[in-house]
Design a protein around this nucleic acid. Structure first.
Lengths: 242, 242
DNA sequence: GCGATCGTGTTCTATATTCGAACACACCGT
DNA sequence: ACGGTGTGTTCGAATATAGAACACGATCGC
């Protein structure tokens, strides 16, 4: 080992185990990529030598978390879903039917986001079957809570002092408005040209979440959409016993 | 390190990286447990010293795959769901509404299993809202393909020579029947007293899966249930473009 | 009050484990 | 043939890991 093996990894996070951390980052890379990756590509994105990625991937494969395509490329395996199935399943099972209804009613992509640390992660997303402009909001995507309607809706559930430092004045104002009326909006925040409306939601274990829609053009008044989302949130909350 | 560090792990699997393998096994342990575990308990089940489990858990926690309860116990975190969200989400999104319909129609727990190596894993499960005797089939649970209706249904999709060695004559006969008529049954196989009916299903990437119901008493004739499940399977297949 | 038990979190050294270069080989386009 | 790209294996160096030992706080029973 030449040198410079000083656990750089993620700047802020001084993890405990380098090997495990790298293995997890491989999973994150594959989840992000959304398509099979070659081992070389994984090694490149991970910033390590090929043989390291190779061994790590073999271990992941042994556990079924990673599968190999016929051409040798690797991708997340079915067992990955099985591992996580227990975590948020009750939530998804109850939320998806409601989201589907709302998505079809409104003709917009409708999704559920949950707060994890300082990030919003999309847990479930449904596109309308016959939507006008179907905007994909793929599950697993993350953005900082500080941007987007779901983030603002989620923040509106918590007292102002707890809001993250990185929240600028304009967004702070938005969150205050969201708290007053019960729903948040965003324009051009996450993706240029897209608008979003979100309603906050509190889960049984106390996690903060939000149901939201994204759309390009707005066939319905904001308040109508918000009202519909509020019903969705209420349905989910009562279904899972919030 | 005293001695006996000979990569025992799983008897058959000679993994590459011990550290990563142990980290993954922690995830498996937590997924199995279905409840927060103390670090000591994790170490015990993993068969390693506490300090090892501690460091591994800290790394997992740094990545958000594991969260700590107020009392210090650990559990799978929301990011775990986010990581896996991309894997089988399209499947779940399409399957859950269908499963819900069928579950409510039949008044039985209705679920989707997928084949992973030699095991059946439950990916999604829905219990009827007003079912007579609601039988929980929790997502993430696994059993060998050789037992249970879903396993037999899945095996019926493949030629006989590919069937696992461990399949006894009685079950072989069951699978042959399943192939003929398109659905499989089981009695007292996975859980005593429970009956199950399953219909096989092939996913876009070629994975083999099955939709099934479990029930205690049978208010409907088997063939009716099978017909209903076949419709569910067809709906899912067409929805995801099988 | 006191000791036993169970838990978390930290420090430390030997060494097993991991790292990462180097090599062998296969495939593809030019 | 040649360079480019990718997989899979070998191997020595030394780092990162393993696991004991320790310190400490709760919580129990007595």
């Amino acid at each position: 080992m030449t040198q410079a093996r000083s656990r750089e990894g993620t700047p802020g996070g001084s993890a405990g185990s380098q090997t495990l951390s790298r293995g997890i980052r491989i999973l994150e890379i594959l989840a992000d990529a959304r398509e099979p990756l070659s081992i070389d590509e994984v090694a490149r994105r991970l910033g390590v030598h090929r043989s390291i990625a190779y061994r790590l991937l073999r271990t992941l494969e042994d556990h079924g978390l990673v599968v190999r395509e016929a051409d040798g490329r690797v991708d997340l395996g079915a067992r990955m879903a099985a591992l996580a199935a227990g975590v948020a399943h009750d939530l998804q099972a109850e939320a998806l039917p409601e989201l589907t209804q709302a998505a079809n009613d409104l003709g917009m992509t409708c999704f559920l986001s949950i707060l994890d640390r300082e990030e919003c992660i999309t847990l479930a997303s449904v596109e309308p079957r016959h939507g006008v402009a179907s905007v994909a909001q793929r599950p697993g995507t993350r953005h900082p809570v500080t941007v987007g309607a779901p983030g603002k809706a989620i923040l509106s559930l918590a007292p102002e002092p707890s809001w993250p430092e990185g929240l600028d004045d304009a967004h702070r104002a938005d969150v205050r408005v969201a708290r007053e009326r019960g729903w948040a909006t965003s324009h051009d925040e996450v993706i240029a040209g897209l608008r979003s409306i979100a309603v906050p939601l509190r889960l049984p274990k106390g996690e903060r979440a939000a149901v939201a829609v994204v759309y390009l053009s707005d066939p319905h008044p904001d308040a109508d959409i918000a009202a519909r989302l509020t019903r969705v949130a209420a349905a989910i909350t009562s279904a899972i016993g919030g």
